[in-house]
């Protein structure tokens, strides 16, 4: 349904161009949940903003690639048409609901505005539909909340109001950019369970952008891991978690403390720091932090390749890493 191909976005800075997204390709099918995972600065948010054509320009600029949504390239359509897509067939929710909600409009008005624009619903019909959606997202007492302003609501309630806005026009695809990161775990669980039930009910596709590997394990069918502007590994959640083929993915998984792991185990951290995008090493961007790196890694950047079906990794030494991982964990 959504097919992103070779997407590249760069920003112009005082030190020259910074390639925030460098040839990213992925696809999402109807009703499917894909997680885009990575640490800060890896380009996961810029990828989603590029899909929606929301990258501020200047300094940002999408330089290459195509974004096919239901057979249409979103890069080629007019800004007027693009506005019909945003909030219509593609909904978006962000990390900080307060910056996405208009503080001087009531919650209800913000939803009915979208309904008027995209579904041509007016007056009573729009209000009824908005109240119905607010109750659907689990906001208590929705007909009263309709007339509340964003500052009347708690963090979790605002996030629900924002989800209500995003799903009000029955989107085919919902992009959730760190949508639950700022929330407490019990509220995070409420929101994610809600999103999952919406996906099942309306066959809505979901693109989760997050750094939380636990959330990914629970909710995503497929996973794409990003590092320094590129997808470095992609596959089903089972493939990625049980048999990572890229050293960065493997490192991430072993550096997360787990709720079900005894306290005595020492965390295996990835040495070094996240690279500076303006000053990337030649060859593989992860090579300076990688303990499997060989000479080839320092000169030639590896492409995302698939040795066995869908599970792809961008690493020259991926077979060795995969073998090491199976040896350590006793399952393949």
């Amino acid at each position: 349904m959504l097919e992103v191909c070779g997407l590249a976005t760069r920003f112009s800075t005082a030190e020259g161009y910074v390639q925030a997204v460098d040839g990213v390709s992925f696809h999402i099918d109807e009703g499917e949940t894909l997680a885009l995972v990575g640490e800060s600065g890896c380009g996961k948010s810029v990828t989603s903003l590029s899909v929606m054509r929301l990258v501020p320009s200047p300094p940002g600029e999408i330089t290459a690639g195509s974004v096919l949504f239901e057979g249409r390239d979103l890069r080629g359509i007019s800004e007027r048409e693009m506005r019909r897509v945003r909030g219509g067939s593609i909904g978006m929710i962000f990390q900080e609901p307060m910056t996405s909600l208009n503080p001087v409009l009531t919650i209800g008005r913000q939803i009915t505005e979208a309904l008027e624009l995209h579904l041509a619903l007016k007056g009573r019909a729009a209000r009824d539909r908005a109240v119905e959606i607010l109750s659907r997202v689990g906001l208590p007492d929705p007909s009263r909340r309709f007339d509340d302003y964003p500052h009347h609501l708690s963090g979790g309630q605002r996030q629900r109001a924002m989800i209500a806005m995003a799903i009000s026009c029955n989107p085919k695809l919902l992009i959730a950019d760190e949508a639950t990161t700022a929330l407490d775990v019990t509220i995070q669980a409420q929101i994610l369970e809600l999103l999952q039930s919406l996906c099942e009910e309306f066959r809505m596709a979901l693109l989760i952008i997050t750094h939380n590997l636990g959330v990914v394990a629970r909710y995503a069918q497929r996973v794409a891991v990003m590092y320094a502007g590129r997808i470095i590994e992609s596959g089903t959640a089972d493939e990625i978690y049980s048999g990572p083929r890229h050293p960065y993915t493997k490192g991430l998984l072993s550096s997360v403390p787990r709720l079900d792991a005894a306290a005595s185990t020492r965390l295996t951290s990835i040495e070094g720091e996240i690279p500076d995008l303006a000053n990337l090493p030649e060859g593989c961007a992860f090579a300076p932090r990688c303990r499997w790196a060989v000479d080839r890694c320092r000169v030639e950047p590896p492409a995302l390749v698939s040795p066995n079906g869908g599970h792809q990794a961008a690493c020259w030494e991926q077979d060795r890493i995969s073998e090491d991982h199976s040896a350590e964990h006793g399952r393949s």
Binding site: A189, N212, G214, A217, S242, L259
Partner: peptide, 12 residues
Amino acid sequence: MSAVPIPDPLIE
């Protein structure tokens, strides 16, 4: 505790 997801899809 039950709200904290564990980074392992099989267990989750």
